[in-house]
Amino acid sequence: MSGVPSNRSQGHIGSLIVSAFFVFAGAVTLYDTTGYSDRDSQVFPQAVAIILIITAALSFIIRFQKPSDEGGFGRGIWWRRVLLIAGMFLACFLMPSIGFLAAGAVAFAGGLIAAMHDKWAAKTVLLYWGCGAVILVAFYSVFKFVLSVPLP
């Protein structure tokens, strides 16, 4: 990623997009405040939204005029990132139907596979999955029975 700054690098375009998003978020907030009935609810979000728009726009302009490669997603393996997060999201959507423990196992499995950079050996497979099961059940029991959290 190092080298000559270019207008088209990931870091540059990404920074512009994020800045633009914040400007947009400020505009949406301003629009939303027009629907409030109480003046007290309006002042603060309006003031903050204006600050957001100004600062985000300035960072957009600064970046636009001085392109650089700063920022970007860096090195790393995408499928692992996606698998981790997808596993956790999937767990949330499954939770109401299959229960907390099973959904937790889905998230755990996703994370375990995503984070496993070494070779799978019979020993590690057994050990890691065994650890996982113990950890899941232990946490589940503590929250459900000791802390009385109504887990589905």
């Binding site: 981790l84 755990f108 995503a114 496993m116 590690t124 950890i135």
Partner: peptide, 10 residues
């Protein structure tokens, strides 16, 4: 790491 990440995630 392979155990740490899913544990923290859970």
């Amino acid at each position: 790491k392979a155990v740490l990440v899913p544990t923290v995630g859970f």
